[in-house]
Design a binder for these strands. Structure first.
Lengths: 231, 231
DNA sequence: GGCATTACTTACATTGATGTCAATATAAAA
DNA sequence: TTTTATATTGACATCAATGTAAGTAATGCC
Protein backbone atom coordinates (compact mmCIF):
# COMPACT_ATOMS: atom_id res chain seq x y z
CA UNK A 1 0.00 0.00 0.00
CA UNK A 2 2.98 2.24 -0.21
CA UNK A 3 2.28 3.41 -3.72
CA UNK A 4 -0.80 5.37 -4.53
CA UNK A 5 -3.42 3.68 -6.67
CA UNK A 6 -3.38 4.92 -10.22
CA UNK A 7 -7.08 5.13 -10.47
CA UNK A 8 -8.09 6.46 -13.83
CA UNK A 9 -5.05 5.65 -15.88
CA UNK A 10 -5.20 4.30 -19.38
CA UNK A 11 -8.71 2.98 -19.80
CA UNK A 12 -8.59 0.31 -22.50
CA UNK A 13 -9.65 1.49 -25.96
CA UNK A 14 -13.21 0.46 -26.42
CA UNK A 15 -13.08 -0.99 -29.91
CA UNK A 16 -16.22 0.26 -31.54
CA UNK A 17 -18.19 -2.99 -31.48
CA UNK A 18 -18.21 -4.16 -35.11
CA UNK A 19 -15.01 -2.98 -36.68
CA UNK A 20 -11.89 -4.22 -34.87
CA UNK A 21 -9.73 -1.34 -36.07
CA UNK A 22 -6.43 -1.82 -34.37
CA UNK A 23 -5.18 1.76 -34.18
CA UNK A 24 -8.30 3.13 -32.58
CA UNK A 25 -6.58 3.97 -29.29
CA UNK A 26 -7.14 7.64 -28.50
CA UNK A 27 -4.05 9.68 -27.83
CA UNK A 28 -5.75 11.43 -24.97
CA UNK A 29 -8.27 10.36 -22.40
CA UNK A 30 -10.95 12.92 -22.06
CA UNK A 31 -13.16 12.56 -19.02
CA UNK A 32 -16.18 14.50 -18.01
CA UNK A 33 -15.25 17.42 -15.83
CA UNK A 34 -17.09 15.83 -12.98
CA UNK A 35 -15.25 12.54 -13.20
CA UNK A 36 -11.90 14.23 -13.60
CA UNK A 37 -12.53 16.22 -10.49
CA UNK A 38 -13.50 13.09 -8.63
CA UNK A 39 -10.36 11.21 -9.64
CA UNK A 40 -8.16 14.13 -8.73
CA UNK A 41 -9.78 14.51 -5.33
CA UNK A 42 -9.42 10.78 -4.70
CA UNK A 43 -5.73 10.93 -5.42
CA UNK A 44 -5.26 14.03 -3.29
CA UNK A 45 -7.08 12.40 -0.41
CA UNK A 46 -4.91 9.34 -0.64
CA UNK A 47 -1.75 11.42 -0.67
CA UNK A 48 -2.89 13.38 2.32
CA UNK A 49 -3.73 10.25 4.24
CA UNK A 50 -0.46 8.48 3.54
CA UNK A 51 2.08 11.27 3.39
CA UNK A 52 0.50 14.09 5.30
CA UNK A 53 -0.03 17.68 4.22
CA UNK A 54 3.19 17.98 2.29
CA UNK A 55 2.13 15.06 0.14
CA UNK A 56 -0.33 17.23 -1.71
CA UNK A 57 1.78 18.28 -4.67
CA UNK A 58 0.19 18.93 -7.99
CA UNK A 59 2.84 17.05 -9.92
CA UNK A 60 2.52 13.95 -7.79
CA UNK A 61 -1.23 13.93 -7.79
CA UNK A 62 -1.24 14.43 -11.53
CA UNK A 63 1.07 11.46 -11.93
CA UNK A 64 -1.20 9.37 -9.73
CA UNK A 65 -4.20 10.12 -11.88
CA UNK A 66 -2.25 9.86 -15.10
CA UNK A 67 -2.67 13.42 -16.28
CA UNK A 68 -0.50 16.51 -16.44
CA UNK A 69 -0.56 18.95 -13.59
CA UNK A 70 -2.06 21.89 -15.48
CA UNK A 71 -5.14 19.75 -15.91
CA UNK A 72 -5.61 19.94 -12.16
CA UNK A 73 -5.30 23.68 -12.27
CA UNK A 74 -7.83 23.75 -15.05
CA UNK A 75 -10.36 22.00 -12.83
CA UNK A 76 -9.57 23.66 -9.54
CA UNK A 77 -8.13 27.04 -10.42
CA UNK A 78 -5.30 26.76 -7.96
CA UNK A 79 -3.76 24.46 -5.44
CA UNK A 80 -5.70 26.28 -2.77
CA UNK A 81 -8.86 25.59 -4.74
CA UNK A 82 -8.06 21.89 -4.79
CA UNK A 83 -7.45 21.94 -1.09
CA UNK A 84 -10.71 23.61 -0.23
CA UNK A 85 -12.59 21.34 -2.59
CA UNK A 86 -11.05 18.39 -0.82
CA UNK A 87 -11.95 19.79 2.56
CA UNK A 88 -15.48 20.47 1.42
CA UNK A 89 -15.94 16.98 0.07
CA UNK A 90 -14.50 15.25 3.11
CA UNK A 91 -16.57 17.43 5.43
CA UNK A 92 -19.66 16.49 3.54
CA UNK A 93 -18.82 12.81 3.69
CA UNK A 94 -18.21 13.07 7.40
CA UNK A 95 -21.47 14.85 7.89
CA UNK A 96 -23.28 12.16 5.94
CA UNK A 97 -21.70 9.41 7.97
CA UNK A 98 -22.64 11.19 11.14
CA UNK A 99 -26.20 11.73 10.15
CA UNK A 100 -26.41 8.10 9.07
CA UNK A 101 -25.08 7.12 12.46
CA UNK A 102 -27.80 9.20 14.05
CA UNK A 103 -30.41 7.05 12.38
CA UNK A 104 -28.83 3.75 13.32
CA UNK A 105 -30.33 1.49 15.95
CA UNK A 106 -34.05 1.17 16.33
CA UNK A 107 -35.23 4.67 16.34
CA UNK A 108 -37.75 4.57 19.11
CA UNK A 109 -35.75 2.67 21.65
CA UNK A 110 -32.77 4.33 23.14
CA UNK A 111 -29.80 2.43 21.81
CA UNK A 112 -27.55 5.34 22.54
CA UNK A 113 -24.64 3.01 22.88
CA UNK A 114 -24.65 1.90 19.31
CA UNK A 115 -25.01 5.47 18.24
CA UNK A 116 -21.95 6.48 20.15
CA UNK A 117 -20.06 3.59 18.66
CA UNK A 118 -20.96 4.63 15.16
CA UNK A 119 -20.02 8.21 15.76
CA UNK A 120 -16.72 7.08 17.16
CA UNK A 121 -16.15 4.89 14.15
CA UNK A 122 -16.93 7.67 11.70
CA UNK A 123 -14.66 10.19 13.35
CA UNK A 124 -11.78 7.89 13.99
CA UNK A 125 -11.39 7.09 10.34
CA UNK A 126 -7.77 7.75 9.70
CA UNK A 127 -8.06 9.72 6.51
CA UNK A 128 -10.89 11.87 7.75
CA UNK A 129 -9.22 12.63 11.03
CA UNK A 130 -5.98 13.51 9.31
CA UNK A 131 -7.67 15.88 6.96
CA UNK A 132 -9.64 17.42 9.75
CA UNK A 133 -6.56 17.77 11.84
CA UNK A 134 -4.61 19.37 9.07
CA UNK A 135 -7.48 21.68 8.32
CA UNK A 136 -7.54 22.84 11.90
CA UNK A 137 -3.77 23.03 12.12
CA UNK A 138 -3.50 25.31 9.15
CA UNK A 139 -6.38 27.49 10.20
CA UNK A 140 -8.78 26.53 7.44
CA UNK A 141 -11.49 25.77 9.94
CA UNK A 142 -14.00 28.51 9.30
CA UNK A 143 -13.91 28.53 5.54
CA UNK A 144 -15.41 25.16 4.81
CA UNK A 145 -15.52 23.05 7.93
CA UNK A 146 -18.17 20.51 8.79
CA UNK A 147 -21.02 22.82 8.12
CA UNK A 148 -23.10 24.28 10.86
CA UNK A 149 -23.77 22.91 14.25
CA UNK A 150 -23.13 19.22 13.67
CA UNK A 151 -22.02 18.72 17.22
CA UNK A 152 -25.16 20.30 18.58
CA UNK A 153 -27.24 18.22 16.24
CA UNK A 154 -25.71 15.00 17.40
CA UNK A 155 -25.93 15.91 21.03
CA UNK A 156 -29.56 16.84 20.47
CA UNK A 157 -30.45 13.54 18.90
CA UNK A 158 -28.60 11.59 21.55
CA UNK A 159 -30.33 13.54 24.25
CA UNK A 160 -33.71 12.78 22.76
CA UNK A 161 -32.96 9.08 23.01
CA UNK A 162 -31.77 9.39 26.56
CA UNK A 163 -34.95 11.13 27.53
CA UNK A 164 -37.01 8.38 25.96
CA UNK A 165 -34.91 5.76 27.65
CA UNK A 166 -35.24 7.45 31.00
CA UNK A 167 -39.00 7.79 30.63
CA UNK A 168 -39.32 4.08 29.87
CA UNK A 169 -37.36 3.21 32.96
CA UNK A 170 -39.24 5.71 35.06
CA UNK A 171 -36.03 7.59 35.78
CA UNK A 172 -35.61 11.37 35.97
CA UNK A 173 -34.72 13.18 32.78
CA UNK A 174 -30.98 13.43 32.23
CA UNK A 175 -29.15 16.72 32.21
CA UNK A 176 -28.75 18.26 28.80
CA UNK A 177 -25.18 19.32 29.36
CA UNK A 178 -24.31 15.84 30.51
CA UNK A 179 -25.31 14.56 27.11
CA UNK A 180 -23.37 17.26 25.36
CA UNK A 181 -20.29 16.33 27.34
CA UNK A 182 -20.70 12.70 26.44
CA UNK A 183 -20.78 13.68 22.79
CA UNK A 184 -17.79 15.92 23.13
CA UNK A 185 -15.80 13.29 24.92
CA UNK A 186 -16.64 10.79 22.23
CA UNK A 187 -15.61 13.19 19.50
CA UNK A 188 -12.38 14.16 21.22
CA UNK A 189 -11.48 10.59 22.02
CA UNK A 190 -12.32 9.30 18.56
CA UNK A 191 -10.31 12.02 16.97
CA UNK A 192 -7.39 11.49 19.30
CA UNK A 193 -7.63 7.79 18.68
CA UNK A 194 -7.26 8.28 14.96
CA UNK A 195 -4.17 10.42 15.34
CA UNK A 196 -2.24 9.16 18.33
CA UNK A 197 -4.27 6.13 19.29
CA UNK A 198 -2.36 3.66 17.21
CA UNK A 199 0.88 5.12 18.40
CA UNK A 200 -0.09 4.84 22.04
CA UNK A 201 -1.51 1.39 21.60
CA UNK A 202 1.66 0.18 19.99
CA UNK A 203 3.74 1.71 22.73
CA UNK A 204 1.63 -0.05 25.33
CA UNK A 205 1.98 -3.33 23.53
CA UNK A 206 -1.63 -3.58 22.48
CA UNK A 207 -2.47 -5.59 19.41
CA UNK A 208 -5.48 -5.25 17.15
CA UNK A 209 -7.68 -7.21 19.51
CA UNK A 210 -6.58 -4.99 22.34
CA UNK A 211 -7.59 -1.89 20.43
CA UNK A 212 -10.98 -3.42 19.80
CA UNK A 213 -11.29 -4.16 23.52
CA UNK A 214 -10.50 -0.53 24.21
CA UNK A 215 -13.39 0.64 22.11
CA UNK A 216 -15.75 -1.74 23.80
CA UNK A 217 -14.46 -0.63 27.16
CA UNK A 218 -15.15 2.96 26.23
CA UNK A 219 -18.66 2.16 25.09
CA UNK A 220 -19.29 0.36 28.34
CA UNK A 221 -17.92 3.27 30.32
CA UNK A 222 -20.46 5.59 28.78
CA UNK A 223 -23.16 3.01 29.11
CA UNK A 224 -22.50 2.60 32.80
CA UNK A 225 -22.48 6.32 33.18
CA UNK A 226 -25.92 6.59 31.66
CA UNK A 227 -27.22 3.72 33.73
CA UNK A 228 -25.75 5.06 36.92
CA UNK A 229 -27.55 8.32 36.39
CA UNK A 230 -30.88 6.66 36.08
CA UNK A 231 -31.23 5.76 39.72
CA UNK B 1 -0.63 38.05 19.81
CA UNK B 2 -0.75 37.83 16.07
CA UNK B 3 2.88 38.72 15.63
CA UNK B 4 5.59 36.51 16.94
CA UNK B 5 7.58 37.81 19.88
CA UNK B 6 11.01 39.01 18.87
CA UNK B 7 12.72 37.36 21.74
CA UNK B 8 16.41 37.95 21.56
CA UNK B 9 16.58 41.00 19.38
CA UNK B 10 18.81 43.92 20.05
CA UNK B 11 19.95 43.46 23.59
CA UNK B 12 20.99 46.87 24.86
CA UNK B 13 24.73 47.50 24.85
CA UNK B 14 25.89 46.85 28.33
CA UNK B 15 28.06 49.91 28.95
CA UNK B 16 31.04 48.56 30.77
CA UNK B 17 30.19 49.83 34.22
CA UNK B 18 32.61 52.72 34.75
CA UNK B 19 33.26 54.28 31.38
CA UNK B 20 30.12 55.58 29.65
CA UNK B 21 31.59 55.27 26.16
CA UNK B 22 28.79 56.19 23.83
CA UNK B 23 29.77 54.35 20.66
CA UNK B 24 30.33 51.01 22.34
CA UNK B 25 27.38 49.33 20.65
CA UNK B 26 28.55 46.13 18.95
CA UNK B 27 27.65 45.72 15.31
CA UNK B 28 26.72 42.14 15.84
CA UNK B 29 25.15 40.27 18.66
CA UNK B 30 27.00 37.10 19.34
CA UNK B 31 25.25 34.63 21.57
CA UNK B 32 26.49 31.39 22.96
CA UNK B 33 25.62 28.54 20.66
CA UNK B 34 23.34 27.17 23.31
CA UNK B 35 21.36 30.35 23.71
CA UNK B 36 21.10 30.92 20.00
CA UNK B 37 19.69 27.44 19.58
CA UNK B 38 17.22 28.09 22.35
CA UNK B 39 15.97 31.33 20.83
CA UNK B 40 15.63 29.77 17.41
CA UNK B 41 13.70 26.82 18.77
CA UNK B 42 11.42 29.16 20.71
CA UNK B 43 10.59 31.09 17.59
CA UNK B 44 10.03 27.93 15.57
CA UNK B 45 7.74 26.57 18.24
CA UNK B 46 5.72 29.75 18.25
CA UNK B 47 5.40 29.70 14.49
CA UNK B 48 4.28 26.11 14.52
CA UNK B 49 1.71 26.80 17.18
CA UNK B 50 0.21 29.83 15.51
CA UNK B 51 0.55 29.08 11.83
CA UNK B 52 0.85 25.36 11.60
CA UNK B 53 3.51 23.31 9.87
CA UNK B 54 3.88 25.62 6.92
CA UNK B 55 4.78 28.42 9.29
CA UNK B 56 8.20 26.92 9.85
CA UNK B 57 10.21 28.85 7.30
CA UNK B 58 13.81 29.68 7.91
CA UNK B 59 13.49 33.25 6.73
CA UNK B 60 10.55 33.99 8.98
CA UNK B 61 12.04 32.36 12.02
CA UNK B 62 15.28 34.19 11.40
CA UNK B 63 13.40 37.47 11.26
CA UNK B 64 11.61 36.65 14.50
CA UNK B 65 14.87 36.07 16.29
CA UNK B 66 16.60 38.95 14.59
CA UNK B 67 19.27 37.03 12.75
CA UNK B 68 19.87 35.96 9.18
CA UNK B 69 18.60 32.61 8.04
CA UNK B 70 21.98 31.01 7.35
CA UNK B 71 22.66 31.42 11.06
CA UNK B 72 19.93 28.90 11.67
CA UNK B 73 21.53 26.53 9.23
CA UNK B 74 24.80 27.06 11.01
CA UNK B 75 23.27 25.82 14.25
CA UNK B 76 21.01 23.09 12.91
CA UNK B 77 22.65 21.94 9.69
CA UNK B 78 19.39 21.92 7.76
CA UNK B 79 15.74 22.68 8.08
CA UNK B 80 15.17 19.03 8.82
CA UNK B 81 17.72 19.30 11.60
CA UNK B 82 15.83 22.19 13.10
CA UNK B 83 12.60 20.25 12.89
CA UNK B 84 13.94 17.21 14.64
CA UNK B 85 15.60 19.32 17.29
CA UNK B 86 12.27 20.98 17.90
CA UNK B 87 10.52 17.65 18.10
CA UNK B 88 13.15 16.33 20.45
CA UNK B 89 12.90 19.32 22.75
CA UNK B 90 9.13 19.36 22.87
CA UNK B 91 9.03 15.63 23.46
CA UNK B 92 11.40 16.03 26.33
CA UNK B 93 9.33 18.83 27.82
CA UNK B 94 6.22 16.74 27.49
CA UNK B 95 7.92 13.83 29.14
CA UNK B 96 9.05 16.04 31.99
CA UNK B 97 5.59 17.44 32.50
CA UNK B 98 4.17 13.95 32.51
CA UNK B 99 6.65 12.63 34.97
CA UNK B 100 6.04 15.67 37.16
CA UNK B 101 2.34 14.95 36.98
CA UNK B 102 3.05 11.42 38.10
CA UNK B 103 4.54 12.75 41.30
CA UNK B 104 1.73 15.16 42.02
CA UNK B 105 -0.77 14.58 44.79
CA UNK B 106 0.28 12.96 48.02
CA UNK B 107 2.26 10.01 46.97
CA UNK B 108 0.99 7.38 49.31
CA UNK B 109 -2.69 8.07 49.02
CA UNK B 110 -4.40 7.34 45.78
CA UNK B 111 -5.35 10.72 44.36
CA UNK B 112 -5.58 9.23 40.93
CA UNK B 113 -8.02 11.90 39.95
CA UNK B 114 -5.61 14.73 40.27
CA UNK B 115 -3.05 12.73 38.40
CA UNK B 116 -5.41 12.23 35.50
CA UNK B 117 -6.19 15.91 35.52
CA UNK B 118 -2.56 16.85 35.33
CA UNK B 119 -1.88 14.42 32.54
CA UNK B 120 -4.83 15.81 30.67
CA UNK B 121 -3.57 19.32 31.21
CA UNK B 122 -0.08 18.49 29.98
CA UNK B 123 -1.25 16.76 26.85
CA UNK B 124 -3.91 19.22 25.91
CA UNK B 125 -1.47 22.08 25.72
CA UNK B 126 -2.13 23.54 22.34
CA UNK B 127 1.41 23.93 21.14
CA UNK B 128 2.48 20.52 22.29
CA UNK B 129 -0.50 18.78 20.79
CA UNK B 130 -0.04 20.57 17.51
CA UNK B 131 3.57 19.61 17.30
CA UNK B 132 2.80 16.06 18.24
CA UNK B 133 0.02 15.92 15.72
CA UNK B 134 2.16 17.29 12.97
CA UNK B 135 4.92 14.90 13.88
CA UNK B 136 2.58 11.96 13.56
CA UNK B 137 0.96 13.33 10.43
CA UNK B 138 4.25 13.65 8.62
CA UNK B 139 5.52 10.31 9.77
CA UNK B 140 8.30 11.53 12.01
CA UNK B 141 7.03 9.40 14.86
CA UNK B 142 9.76 6.81 15.24
CA UNK B 143 12.78 9.05 14.85
CA UNK B 144 12.45 11.21 17.92
CA UNK B 145 9.07 10.75 19.52
CA UNK B 146 8.33 10.85 23.21
CA UNK B 147 11.01 8.45 24.15
CA UNK B 148 10.27 4.94 25.18
CA UNK B 149 7.21 3.60 26.84
CA UNK B 150 5.85 6.75 28.41
CA UNK B 151 2.31 5.50 28.13
CA UNK B 152 3.17 2.28 29.85
CA UNK B 153 5.02 4.16 32.54
CA UNK B 154 2.05 6.38 33.30
CA UNK B 155 -0.39 3.52 33.29
CA UNK B 156 1.94 1.65 35.60
CA UNK B 157 2.13 4.44 38.11
CA UNK B 158 -1.58 5.02 38.00
CA UNK B 159 -2.22 1.36 38.50
CA UNK B 160 0.01 1.31 41.51
CA UNK B 161 -2.10 4.00 43.12
CA UNK B 162 -5.29 2.24 42.30
CA UNK B 163 -4.04 -0.89 43.94
CA UNK B 164 -3.13 1.03 47.06
CA UNK B 165 -6.46 2.77 47.08
CA UNK B 166 -8.30 -0.51 46.66
CA UNK B 167 -6.32 -2.13 49.44
CA UNK B 168 -7.18 0.70 51.81
CA UNK B 169 -10.84 0.36 51.02
CA UNK B 170 -10.69 -3.37 51.29
CA UNK B 171 -11.74 -3.70 47.66
CA UNK B 172 -10.45 -6.23 45.15
CA UNK B 173 -7.46 -5.24 43.06
CA UNK B 174 -8.42 -3.50 39.83
CA UNK B 175 -7.76 -4.93 36.43
CA UNK B 176 -4.49 -3.84 34.90
CA UNK B 177 -5.93 -3.36 31.45
CA UNK B 178 -8.71 -1.27 32.87
CA UNK B 179 -6.13 1.18 34.12
CA UNK B 180 -4.33 1.18 30.81
CA UNK B 181 -7.57 1.99 29.07
CA UNK B 182 -8.26 4.84 31.41
CA UNK B 183 -4.86 6.24 30.58
CA UNK B 184 -5.38 5.79 26.88
CA UNK B 185 -8.76 7.43 26.98
CA UNK B 186 -7.33 10.34 28.87
CA UNK B 187 -4.52 10.73 26.40
CA UNK B 188 -6.77 10.46 23.38
CA UNK B 189 -9.34 12.83 24.81
CA UNK B 190 -6.77 15.38 25.92
CA UNK B 191 -5.12 15.29 22.57
CA UNK B 192 -8.39 15.57 20.73
CA UNK B 193 -9.41 18.35 23.03
CA UNK B 194 -6.34 20.35 22.12
CA UNK B 195 -6.96 20.00 18.41
CA UNK B 196 -10.70 19.95 17.85
CA UNK B 197 -11.95 20.60 21.36
CA UNK B 198 -12.13 24.37 21.07
CA UNK B 199 -13.78 24.04 17.73
CA UNK B 200 -16.44 21.68 18.99
CA UNK B 201 -17.00 23.71 22.11
CA UNK B 202 -17.51 26.84 20.12
CA UNK B 203 -19.89 25.10 17.80
CA UNK B 204 -21.89 23.88 20.75
CA UNK B 205 -21.99 27.35 22.23
CA UNK B 206 -19.80 26.56 25.21
CA UNK B 207 -17.83 29.37 26.77
CA UNK B 208 -14.65 29.16 28.79
CA UNK B 209 -16.50 28.18 31.92
CA UNK B 210 -18.29 25.46 30.01
CA UNK B 211 -15.00 24.02 28.83
CA UNK B 212 -13.79 23.98 32.40
CA UNK B 213 -16.96 22.17 33.42
CA UNK B 214 -16.29 19.61 30.73
CA UNK B 215 -12.91 18.79 32.18
CA UNK B 216 -14.36 18.43 35.64
CA UNK B 217 -17.12 16.27 34.24
CA UNK B 218 -14.55 14.02 32.63
CA UNK B 219 -12.54 13.74 35.81
CA UNK B 220 -15.69 12.79 37.67
CA UNK B 221 -16.58 10.23 35.04
CA UNK B 222 -13.32 8.44 35.59
CA UNK B 223 -13.58 8.84 39.31
CA UNK B 224 -17.01 7.26 39.36
CA UNK B 225 -15.72 4.48 37.21
CA UNK B 226 -12.96 3.72 39.68
CA UNK B 227 -15.34 3.91 42.61
CA UNK B 228 -17.92 1.76 40.94
CA UNK B 229 -15.36 -0.93 40.40
CA UNK B 230 -14.43 -1.10 44.02
CA UNK B 231 -17.59 -2.75 45.20
C1' DG C 1 48.37 42.69 22.45
C1' DG C 2 48.09 38.79 19.38
C1' DC C 3 45.68 34.55 18.00
C1' DA C 4 42.35 30.98 17.34
C1' DT C 5 37.72 29.82 17.23
C1' DT C 6 33.27 30.29 15.69
C1' DA C 7 28.77 32.87 15.56
C1' DC C 8 27.11 35.52 12.12
C1' DT C 9 26.41 38.06 7.66
C1' DT C 10 25.76 39.19 2.65
C1' DA C 11 25.38 37.61 -1.82
C1' DC C 12 24.59 33.98 -4.67
C1' DA C 13 23.29 29.19 -6.42
C1' DT C 14 19.86 25.66 -6.70
C1' DT C 15 15.89 23.38 -6.49
C1' DG C 16 11.19 22.48 -6.70
C1' DA C 17 6.58 23.82 -6.75
C1' DT C 18 2.72 26.73 -8.53
C1' DG C 19 0.89 28.97 -12.18
C1' DT C 20 0.54 30.76 -17.43
C1' DC C 21 0.04 30.28 -22.38
C1' DA C 22 -0.70 28.76 -26.77
C1' DA C 23 -1.72 24.82 -29.13
C1' DT C 24 -4.14 20.19 -29.73
C1' DA C 25 -7.30 16.56 -29.43
C1' DT C 26 -11.77 14.79 -28.30
C1' DA C 27 -16.71 14.67 -27.50
C1' DA C 28 -20.96 16.43 -28.63
C1' DA C 29 -24.03 19.67 -31.13
C1' DA C 30 -25.46 21.71 -35.50
C1' DT D 1 -19.35 17.04 -41.99
C1' DT D 2 -18.59 21.16 -39.83
C1' DT D 3 -18.60 23.62 -35.77
C1' DT D 4 -18.26 24.58 -31.01
C1' DA D 5 -16.80 23.87 -26.52
C1' DT D 6 -13.54 22.33 -23.44
C1' DA D 7 -10.48 18.78 -21.35
C1' DT D 8 -5.76 18.19 -21.88
C1' DT D 9 -0.90 18.90 -22.93
C1' DG D 10 4.17 20.58 -23.24
C1' DA D 11 7.07 24.29 -22.67
C1' DC D 12 7.93 28.13 -20.16
C1' DA D 13 7.66 31.84 -16.48
C1' DT D 14 7.85 32.88 -11.73
C1' DC D 15 8.65 32.68 -7.16
C1' DA D 16 9.81 31.19 -2.76
C1' DA D 17 12.45 28.39 0.14
C1' DT D 18 16.65 25.81 1.26
C1' DG D 19 21.30 25.56 1.03
C1' DT D 20 26.45 27.28 -0.14
C1' DA D 21 30.59 30.09 0.07
C1' DA D 22 33.57 33.39 1.55
C1' DG D 23 34.36 36.90 4.36
C1' DT D 24 33.63 39.62 9.01
C1' DA D 25 33.50 40.39 13.79
C1' DA D 26 33.00 39.06 18.61
C1' DT D 27 34.83 36.25 22.34
C1' DG D 28 38.07 33.66 25.11
C1' DC D 29 42.70 32.23 25.72
C1' DC D 30 47.78 32.64 25.45
Amino acid sequence: MSSVAKSGLRTPPRNAGTAPDIKREPKRIRRSAEEARRLILDAAEERLATQGPEGIRLQDIARDVGISHPAILHHFESREGLVSALIARTSEQLRDKMLAALKSGDNTKAEANELIGNVFEALSDRGTARLLSWMLLTGRAQSSGPSGALMTEIAGELHQRRIEGAAEAGAPAPDREDTLFMSMLTANAAFGDAIIGRYLAEEAGLDQAGIARFRLWFAKLLHDHVDGRKE
